[in-house]
Amino acid sequence: MCEQRREVGIRGGLPGALAEQLAVPASSLHALPDSVDAVLGALVEPGGNALRAARAAAPAPGDRALVLGPGTIGLLVAMFLRASGAEVHLMGTTESSLAFARSLGFEHVWTEESVPDVPFDAVVDASNAASLPDLALELVEPGGRLVYIGLAGEPSRIDTRTLVLKDVIATGVLSASPGLDATIRAYAAGSVDPRPLVAATVGLDEVGPVLAGERPAGCGPGPKIHVEP
C-alpha cells in the first residue's frame, strides 16, 4: 500500500526481469528452503494472494466455502481453504476448467446454474466477471465473509443494502506481499501443492508464443506455463 511501491517490470522504474543480475532491496527477498524448488518458487507470488484471500474467508473446520472462478488464483484459494479444513466448493463456466478442478480432488464443482441451495459461510470471488461480486453477496450466509480478489474489466457493483442487512464482512485483497512467508512455509511443508497447476515448462526461446496466448504442444490442462531460463 506504500505510495512509493516499486515493482520489477511493472511500475516504478525497475526494469531488468530478463537480466542476468538484478539488484533489489534485501528487505524484499524471501529465502526458499531446499524443498521449495524453482517451480514452487515461481508460484509463491500468486500463492501469497490466494493465502490472504483464504485467511480473509476465515473458515472454521467444517465451514462451507465457495470460490467463484477456478483459474490460478481461485484454485490456489481453494487449496488453502481445503488445507484449513473447510468444505470447498468451486463455481466455473467451462467444462474443461471444472474437470481440471475435479482432477485436483475437489468434489463440489458447479456451474452458476447448478450451484446447490446450501448455506455458504464464506464466498471468494476470484473471477473477472462483473456480475459475480453481486452473486457472491447473494450466495453468502448472513453473518458470513465475502472476499473479493478478482478484478473485472468494467465496474462490478454490489448492493450495499444487502451487505448491511446480511451483516457480512467484505474484504478486498490486492497484493501477495504480506502472505509470501506463510505461502513458502505451506509449500515447504506440503500442506498446499500447486505443482499440478503447471501445464508445461518452456525455455526463453518459447516465451513469445506463450505470452501471445499459445499453448505449447503436449502441455497439460493446468493454467500456468513455467519459464525455465
Rank of each mutant, 00 (worst) to 15 (best):
L14V: 14
A17I: 07
L18I: 04
L18R: 03
L22Q: 05
V24L: 12
S27G: 09
S28H: 14
S28D: 12
H30R: 08
H30K: 08
A31F: 06
A31N: 02
A31Y: 06
L32N: 09
P33K: 07
S35C: 04
V39W: 06
G41W: 01
N49H: 12
L51R: 11
R52W: 00
A53Q: 14
A54I: 10
A57P: 13
A57M: 13
A57T: 12
A58Q: 15
P59C: 12
A60I: 02
G62W: 00
D63N: 08
P70L: 10
G71H: 05
G71W: 05
G71Y: 06
T72P: 05
I73C: 07
I73Y: 08
G74E: 06
L75G: 04
V77W: 01
A78V: 06
A78E: 08
M79C: 07
L81T: 09
S84E: 15
G85I: 06
A86P: 02
E87R: 08
V88E: 04
H89G: 08
H89K: 04
L90V: 07
L90P: 04
T94N: 03
S96V: 10
S97D: 14
L98T: 07
F100P: 15
A101N: 13
S103I: 05
L104D: 14
E107L: 15
E107F: 08
E107S: 15
H108I: 02
V109F: 02
T111Y: 10
E113I: 00
P119V: 03
F120S: 12
F120C: 13
D121M: 00
V123C: 09
V124D: 11
V124I: 15
D125R: 11
N128E: 02
A130N: 03
A130H: 12
P133K: 13
D134S: 15
A136W: 09
A136C: 12
L137E: 09
L137I: 09
L137H: 01
L137Q: 11
E138F: 04
L139G: 09
V140L: 11
P142D: 07
